[in-house]
Amino acid sequence: MRNLLPLLLSIGFRLALWCLLTSDLSWLNLLIGLVVALLLPRARSRPLPLRALLLATSRSLLAIPQAYGEALRLIFAPAVEEREASEPATDRALPLLVFLDVFRITLTPFTIVLGLEDDGRRYRIHSLMPASKQDGSRL
């Protein structure tokens, strides 16, 4: 099951994109989409822990409303300060999880990932924060 998961995931993702693109749910179209999804080359898949994947996905989705909050706070902030920080990476071994982490961090306007350091164990992060903490522009 764990070996099958990446395959199912990529096929499902491609099929979903196909359906969105063609906006047609007839059997013939689904069949064509399935064939295309199977024929496209695949990256070498690795067993994927489902729990970590679900956690990372939900955190990335949660980052979207959070990003709007941060954008508003950044707009109303009187002054900003730049800083460089680093954050421990979850798992180096799984490219998909790293991708989701990078996506989550970069999506929010306060922070951008600059790259991996320390042989991939930490993310190097550049952050732009409202300067004063007691400003209280919580929205």
């Binding site: 990003a67 709007y68 954008a71 950044l74 707009i75 900003v80 730049e82 970069t106 999506l107 306007p109 306060f110 951008i112 550049h126 732009l128």
Partner: peptide
């Protein structure tokens, strides 16, 4: 600085 521009651009173009 370049990176602060990128922060602002992520607000504008993505959000």
């Amino acid at each position: 600085s370049y990176l602060s521009k990128l922060h602002a651009l992520s607000v504008a173009d993505t959000l």
